[in-house]
Design a protein around this nucleic acid. Structure first.
Length: 301
DNA sequence: ATTAGGACCTGTTTGC
DNA sequence: TGCAAACAGGTCCTAA
């Protein structure tokens, strides 16, 4: 479940069902699920066994369990759900999912934690925790190494609005591309980028460096707001691929104004929502509220 | 150094 | 009806 609100729904589920429990055994299937873990799946499985889950943290779309191992070498089990990853808390006797890649048993013999991922863009890694150079506000155990390059998301205390506006305006690129750049601001994906741009009445192809500070500020505020609203509704799900740890779907899809609304009237002005190709995916926008900029002239010479 | 584009997967939907 | 192409919410690597 890809974007920030959906990942946060999962984090809260893990906090309720996994926090404080001790992992007794892990089984990883196939090499791909741990491809970001240099030492391989067997190493990951062996090293998490006997560790207690002492925190469940998140930045943007990255999620991690802080583990307190017997060897006193605190580390993090980092999880990225990619496009189709799911973390499910289920009875060990429940039937195996077709795309089950990892299962964690606990010493209390309670329900298992499973990682299921159809498209295998997601994955697991076991890494160290380092202090966050951007500030440790909200992350008392630090940040896992693979997450250090990810910018704070708009819903965490470390988010610096003024600094982010400045970074966005320093980009000679389309505003939608910049919103999706997780090293500038994290947590925003294709759905919430389209929704934030619709709310701010800015076309995604406008050049970030040509926007005013207040305009960029408005786009970021709308991104934060729409993600907060989605979170309050359990996230956005179009099908059973995107669910919380109990397998339930959110219902923010009913509140979407632009994303996936091609041909429907804009809730603000009634003009039909348009769709266009954008870097191998789709953008949805209102042609009247979000006028397309003049195509940028490439400057040869 | 920065930015644009393709690669990585599998399953479902759309269009000829 | 059958098949191929298009499409799906993300990130990373490479080449210009």
């Amino acid at each position: 479940m890809p974007e920030l609100p959906e990942v946060e729904v999962v984090r809260r589920g893990l906090q309720d069902h996994v926090l404080g429990r001790t992992i007794s055994r892990a089984v990883l299937t196939g090499a791909r699920v741990a491809r970001r873990h240099a030492a391989g799946p067997a190493d990951l499985a062996a090293r998490v066994a006997g560790s207690r889950v002492v925190d469940v943290d998140r930045r943007g779309k990255y999620l991690w369990l802080v583990l307190d191992p017997p060897a006193d070498d605190p580390h993090a089990l980092v999880v990225h759900l990619g496009m189709s990853g799911q973390l499910l808390v289920e009875d060990a006797a429940a039937p195996r999912e077709k795309h089950l890649h990892a299962a964690f048993d606990f010493a209390d013999d309670g329900p298992q934690l499973r990682f299921v991922d159809q498209r295998t863009f997601g994955g697991l890694a076991l890494t160290g925790l380092l202090p966050d150079r951007r500030g440790d506000a909200g992350h008392p155990h630090g940040i896992p190494e693979p997450v250090l390059h990810i910018a704070p998301d708009p819903l965490e205390p470390a988010f610096d609005r003024a600094a982010t506006v400045k970074r966005v305006r320093g980009k000679d690129s389309e505003i939608k591309r910049v919103l999706l750049d997780q090293t500038v601001v994290s947590g925003v994906g294709n759905i919430y980028a389209d929704e934030a741009l619709w709310r701010a009445q800015v076309h995604g192809r406008r050049t970030a460096s040509a926007l005013t500070g207040p305009t960029v500020g408005r786009v970021l505020d709308h991104a934060a707001e729409v993600m907060r609203e989605a979170l309050a509704q359990g996230g956005t799900s179009f099908d059973e691929l995107y669910v919380n740890v109990n397998g339930a779907s959110g219902y923010f899809d009913r509140s979407l104004a632009a994303y996936g609304q091609t041909g429907r009237p804009c809730p603000r002005c009634g003009t039909l929502i348009a769709r266009e190709q954008f870097v191998n995916r789709s953008s949805h926008f209102c042609p009247r509220c979000q006028p397309r900029p003049r195509p940028r002239r490439t400057l040869p010479r």
